[in-house]
Design a protein around this nucleic acid. Sequence first.
DNA 1: CGAGACATGTAAGGGGTTACATGATTTA
DNA 2: TAAATCATGTAACCCCTTACATGTCTCG
Lengths: 186, 186
Amino acid sequence: VFGSPNRTVRIRRLSSDASDIRLTPTSYIVLGFLSLLGEATPYDLKRMVSLSVGHFWSFPHSQLYAEPDRLAAAGLVTVRKEPAGRRRKLYTLTGRGEAALARWRSAPVLEGYEMRDPATLKLFFGAEPAALARAELEVLAAELRELEGVSATEASGAPEGPRLALEYGVHMLRASREFWERLVRE
Amino acid sequence: VFGSPNRTVRIRRLSSDASDIRLTPTSYIVLGFLSLLGEATPYDLKRMVSLSVGHFWSFPHSQLYAEPDRLAAAGLVTVRKEPAGRRRKLYTLTGRGEAALARWRSAPVLEGYEMRDPATLKLFFGAEPAALARAELEVLAAELRELEGVSATEASGAPEGPRLALEYGVHMLRASREFWERLVRE
DNA sequence: CGAGACATGTAAGGGGTTACATGATTTA
DNA sequence: TAAATCATGTAACCCCTTACATGTCTCG
């Protein structure tokens, strides 16, 4: 958005470390949960994700095996193997990892909200609105039930962040439902 | 979702053609616009996208150079070169392309709505709600102005699909704004 | 007519999805 | 105890992004 598009300028951040990687939302999910859990295996992460963030930001669990190693290569987390038994990998945040997480958390959000809803595309390209709406409403209903279920089970005890995120999810699902219901009526 | 997850079953659709590719949302955007435009260059597509779908489903223009060739390899579109001048590539839908588009358009939507909003993640992982909300509201305001601008310029003449998609976009942006405004107040 | 801005593309690399596998644990 | 399901992980592929380039208008 900023800057003239074609200027051939080489932007190269001075990196504080030789191995600098790009941190994606997935990265921050890993960092975030490691910060909460202390030390965790990919499977621990997977379990946490599917109980929480996964409800509104889903991705395949295989990512949770690859991503921590990427972060380890960049020095944001450390690995160690279980001494006995399955010898699974245990990951922990490093100081730099904590710092990266904190920076991200408090940075103003640059990237904006984006729809990326397949149903909208179909609508755009001429799908029959009422039929589309009915199909979409079923999916929405299922997701709403899910989220409201979660919200019920942890009504009181949950920390503020997750609770607010959940509320946001429910709010948006309801808004979406409103729209598709209107389409059905027309 | 269906079937037991670990059964080693080889699902292999009988394909009506040797070269079968996976069709992504990007594919359908290309197919959709080719259907509307008849014959088009990648740049034509880019222009259409940035005026319409791009407002709620954005991606780099380089995709619009690669994707048509992928579709051509699968026999869904045909290519020809401009006979003179720039000798740009012109793409047209084939019968199979039309069919694929129609199938997609009328198929019930399987994949559901998904949030995938970076701000939600930050909220989840403990960003300071009010500050985050204020930053987010600015972005939302800008996007709303955009969409409402479009909606004003083509208020009457636009076909139903695009118009409804636009309405959906505005609806959801407003819903999002509502939520973040509440956060600021608290 | 020189400088931006627009038009038009190519190439490399990596993140993410899909598919495949094989222990472990519950349940009928 | 066989079968299903959960747990745990690996591997390959490919779409997509980022970065880089080079025409070609257009307008002061």
